[in-house]
Amino acid sequence: MEALWFWLIALSLAIYVLLDGFDLGAGALHLLLAKTDEEREQILASIGPFWDGNEVWLLAGGGTFFFAFPSPFSAAFSGLYLPLMVVLWLLILRGIAIESRHLLHNALWNPFWDVIFSGSSALLCIFFGAALGNVIRGVPLDSNGEFFLPLWTTFTPGPNPGILDWYTVLVALLATVALLHHGALWVAYRTHKPIENRALEAAKHLWIALTVLTPIVTLVSQYVRPGLFDNFGRYPIGVAFPILAIFGLTASRGSHKFLGSCAFLLGMLLSVVFSVFPSILPGIGNPGLTIHNGAASQYGLQIGLVWWIPAFLLSCAYAVFLYRRFAGKVDRPAAT
């Protein structure tokens, strides 16, 4: 039962990354891909109806995490207090930028929000990547199963780590490149030339960076957390996840570019989740908080399934409905 919830939460958060990932990536590339005001409006229109719904997957995944595994949830959120507060501020600024930019046409107003939107999107990619890096590296849990990490200490992943060290920054870099690549392919799919061409060009360069970074980060992870990949020996079925990632990375150069990128992100995330299983919040050199010592009561987990599964299917149905309604290229904004 605990393992089932572990995978359901992983699935929700993976959906979050696939969906919000493209609008974060598109946001970070916004200033580079679109040169004129009309072009910038196209990029914003390409994510306009979706970004809020995409962000809801974060809240849904977080809420599910909260009720299924209360002690790892509360330890992680209080321990990562500072970066999460920064993430909140960035989410606020970004949401406001998207919703405010199109309300006025003004030589100061539009560029101002473009910079806020783009900057906050890029920083969010970096912070989410660093958070992932912290989970892989492990956090210094005390005897109460709690911790607190400063933003940085010595920038090395030793016994007294900070949120940012060379390893977590490297993971952040990979995550950012992956989301930029994802966003560029979304923009190419949804917008008209010449943005489409610029986005495809950017995606080509980002693809090369991804292909170089992915194996490097994988090897370094094994060094930072020895035994990280033991699960693959224990349950060889897990090899399906890295294969999915490699397949996706290849496909993202071919005819199904955006879907390929989705497969790549899904494969990478599930590979990480599979590697740390059954830990939810690994300690440094120990399994830390796992599905066995951190779960809610059996009754809660069982009854939760009764309402969670229909809600999940319903949410997927809304998402499919919305994405079909707004499928294809965005409307060209009327010439002004």
Binding site: G63, F67, S71, S74, L314
Partner: peptide, 22 residues
């Protein structure tokens, strides 16, 4: 949250899953 997440977490997760998506 640690003490009560197993109880109120149900309600907050329901809010996210049912109403926010709608």
């Amino acid at each position: 949250s640690k003490a009560t997440g197993g109880v109120i977490g149900q309600l907050l997760a329901m809010e996210g899953m049912y109403s926010f998506f709608l």
